[in-house]
């Protein structure tokens, strides 16, 4: 029997993977992938909650997140391409103009 906990564990594992990706990856594109994984981990958790508690709000939020993730990727990738055209690389460590 697959319970809610199984889904939540899956979501947690996925979230952890994405967190490691966010912290360790230096390539901006990879960073995007990692964030997508994090969002989807949350999506899984929301959908699972929705199913087990018979409450559609969770799925509703999951859809919201998908929509927002899509637009975020669209804007983000656009900015990334411009950045690549300007500097010729997308390494995270070169992006330090805002240091204090």
């Amino acid at each position: 029997m697959i319970t809610l906990n199984h889904y939540l564990v899956l979501a947690a594992i996925l979230f952890s993977i994405s967190l490691v990706g966010i912290l360790r990856r230096k390539n901006l594109l990879m960073l995007f992938f990692a964030t997508e994984i994090a969002l989807n981990a949350v999506n899984i958790a929301l959908a699972a909650f929705s199913k087990f508690y018979h409450d559609l709000t969770g799925q509703l939020f999951a859809f919201f997140i998908i929509a927002i993730a899509a637009s975020e990727v669209a804007v983000g990738l656009g900015l990334l391409i411009i950045w690549y055209k300007r500097t010729g690389n997308i390494d995270l460590d070169t992006l330090q103009s805002m240091n204090g």
Partner: peptide, 17 residues
Amino acid sequence: SRVVQSGNLSKMLRWMV
């Protein structure tokens, strides 16, 4: 303490975590 604000994204994310 202002070195915390290095501007490096992954470092800042690390602080966030």
